[in-house]
């Protein structure tokens, strides 16, 4: 029973971790908390569903979807965010992502209606615990691949330079705009993975990612908003905590599980505001 719950928590946590990783990627590169991240993931999940329903095998549809999501992320950065970047304040940027959130949500409702849809599981015949473990494995593999790219390749060096100081990077000849678009694309691709991982348990509907976004915020806050490793660790921790609290705390139950991430966020902000793996900001005027 307990082991089963733990596995389920890890499976959900893998989905939260992927979305948290997407949030952290966007935040690291552009300093924006992208409230539309969950909705972009939802849109990608609908695309994956459409592909599978129209006859494409699951393991072909998945990479196609992730590639499409990457392109959508790059386009969003190019068409929407970059036009605002010069001189726009934090408020304007966040409001824009909220506008995108509303827009994408309405678009999905318009195209696919608000009906609940069953999403195929990648491992239809395996027991649920094993599927959860596999989901956690997928999230871990993605993080590993991302870490390899960032730490070991020239592209990764350029990305780290832009994240550390965009102006200095530009002065050393880095095409900062391209790297930012790349960051948004990578974030959208990882987010799409989150949607696909979670859709079999959550069912597909336009507002499926709203709750997940809350969990992902908690995961990113717990891990530290500027740490990719922290996002994944935080996601798994939040998933397990939420599942166990829902099962063993009678007061919480299935209905109030969504309050768990709020409690986590507030506790982290009060006790260790930079998160577990994050760096405390050094402010300089």
């Amino acid at each position: 029973m307990f082991g089963q719950q733990l596995l389920e928590g890890l499976g959900a946590g893998a989905g939260y971790a992927a979305l948290a990783l997407a949030l952290v990627l966007t935040y690291r590169f552009t300093g924006i908390v992208n409230f539309a991240q969950g909705e972009l993931a939802m849109l990608a999940t609908y695309v994956a569903w459409q592909l599978v329903v129209s006859g494409m095998p699951y393991w072909v549809a998945l990479p196609v979807t992730v590639a499409l999501a990457f392109a959508a992320g790059v386009l969003t950065e190019r068409l929407v965010i970059r036009r605002l970047e010069s001189g726009a304040g934090e408020v304007t940027l966040v409001v824009t992502t909220i506008g995108l959130y509303v827009l994408v949500n309405a678009l999905a409702t318009l195209v696919w209606t608000a009906a609940l849809r069953a999403f195929p599981s990648p491992f239809p015949d395996s027991p649920p615990g094993l599927a959860a473990l596999a989901a956690a494995g997928v999230a871990g593999a993605v993080l590993g691949a991302l870490a390899l790219v960032v730490r070991r390749t020239g592209l990764g060096l350029v990305m780290r330079a832009v994240a550390a100081d965009a102006r200095s990077a530009r002065l050393s000849g880095v095409r900062v705009g391209r790297v930012l678009a790349l960051g948004w694309g990578a974030a959208a691709a990882v987010g799409a993975l989150s949607g696909v991982l979670l859709a079999p348990t959550l069912f597909l509907e336009p507002s499926m990612m709203t709750g997940v976004l809350v969990y992902a915020f908690a995961a990113a806050t717990l891990g530290g908003f500027d740490s990719a490793l922290g996002a994944v660790a935080g996601g798994l921790a939040v998933g397990v905590t939420e599942t166990l609290a829902g099962t063993y705390l009678g007061f919480v139950g299935a209905d109030l599980k969504i309050a768990v991430p709020l409690v986590i966020v507030v506790a982290v902000l009060l006790l260790r505001p930079q998160g577990l793996f994050g760096s405390a900001p050094v402010e300089r005027a």
């Binding site: 824009t96 909220i98 506008g99 959130y101 509303v102 949500n105 309405a106 409702t109 318009l110």
Partner: peptide, 14 residues
């Protein structure tokens, strides 16, 4: 359309 309010609000914000 039931989806239209969201569409219009989102477009208005942007």
């Amino acid at each position: 359309n039931p989806a239209a309010p969201g569409l219009v609000s989102g477009l208005l914000i942007v």
